[in-house]
Amino acid sequence: MSFKTVERKPLSFAERTYVPQILGGLKTTFKKMVKPNETLEYPEARPTIPPGYRGVPTLVKDPNGREKCVSCQLCEFVCPPKAIRIKPGEIPADDPTAHVEKAPQEFDIDMLRCIYCGLCQEVCPEEAIWLQNVFSLSGYTREEMVNNKAKLYELGGTLPDDHYKWDKKKAAEEAGNGGH
């Protein structure tokens, strides 16, 4: 390691009295004092949530009201703090979405464990789990802080769907193989 000696500029007399510097500082702080506050007064004023914000993970339905999660459990697998717990199940044959075959029976996200990393959203092949704009979650008990399936759908609501892949699948199934 080499050293380089840097000559300091000698202070002028005025600088050595501190006075001009102190006055400069006072000027700066006074300007700051009369400017509006930077602080967001949280409960009354809410921050604008930017797009792509990673809030509380939620489950969403497609615009037709179909629950998008098929309980593939990839989120459960990828979840670093193991906050997600899914019990998969079969959709009954008389359900309008029976062609999807699989849906979660139970879907719990332990918000005491969740670290809001968004890996579940990234890994989801069905675009069913989304970290949306809810950022303040509180409860009085540990049980309250575990979001069950109903709560997750309530938080998630409906998001637009670009694909409707299962609807297309059903339509193709009903149409059968053409020209056979």
Partner: peptide, 9 residues
């Protein structure tokens, strides 16, 4: 075993 659990768990 259908739809019971993913094998990687």
């Amino acid at each position: 075993f259908r739809f019971k659990m993913r094998v990687w768990f």
